[in-house]
């Protein structure tokens, strides 16, 4: 992650390749908007933007491919870039945003905060429970009362939280 030398980072080539494929797809979709039928059609600027992406993506790909590959003893992609910690946390977040519409803000946030605190800090579960309650109370008061934000209510427990 903190690699600043000229070497290629693990997974970098693959990522750049994915970005390039995405750019080509975007260009194709931009072309599909209005083709080359005029110079002021809605599709011209999207084609220009995705065209720049394709060209710069190719340049980046060539540059990255030219870099020396990561050394055999260097940390792998999963040890250095997408660590277990990242995968688990992203998993928590995905679960959090997926259940929020049905469970509502308070319960889903409480679950997420507790799991994330416990996973990242690994301290006494009761302490983490207290921390969750305090932070959630502050967030709720500040945003519901001060900012008057409408927080997701949740369809399952409609009216209770």
């Amino acid at each position: 992650m903190t690699n600043t030398s000229a070497g290629r980072r693990p997974g970098e080539l693959f990522f750049v390749l994915v970005m390039l494929v995405f750019s080509v797809g975007a260009f194709w979709q931009a072309y599909a908007i209005s083709g080359f039928s005029g110079k002021t059609t809605p599709g011209v600027f999207p084609m220009l933007a995705s065209g720049v992406m394709v060209i710069s993506g190719l340049v980046i790909l060539v540059n990255v491919a030219r870099m020396p590959a990561p050394a055999a003893d260097a940390p792998s992609f999963f040890a250095d870039i997408l660590t277990l910690r990242h995968i688990v946390l992203i998993g928590f977040v995905v679960g959090y945003v997926l259940v929020m519409p049905s469970l509502g803000f308070v319960i889903s946030s409480a679950l997420f905060l507790y799991c994330a605190f416990q996973f990242l800090w690994r301290k006494n579960p009761v302490l983490m429970l207290g921390l969750t309650a305090v932070t959630l109370a502050i967030i709720y008061l500040v945003f519901r009362e001060v900012f008057q934000v409408v927080l997701p209510q949740g369809t399952l427990l409609q009216g209770y939280f």
Partner: peptide, 15 residues
């Protein structure tokens, strides 16, 4: 500690 900050940032971002 960042272990507290990071989940908080995520909750605030979602809300």
């Amino acid at each position: 500690p960042k272990a507290v900050l990071i989940p908080l940032i995520i909750v605030l971002s979602a809300v």
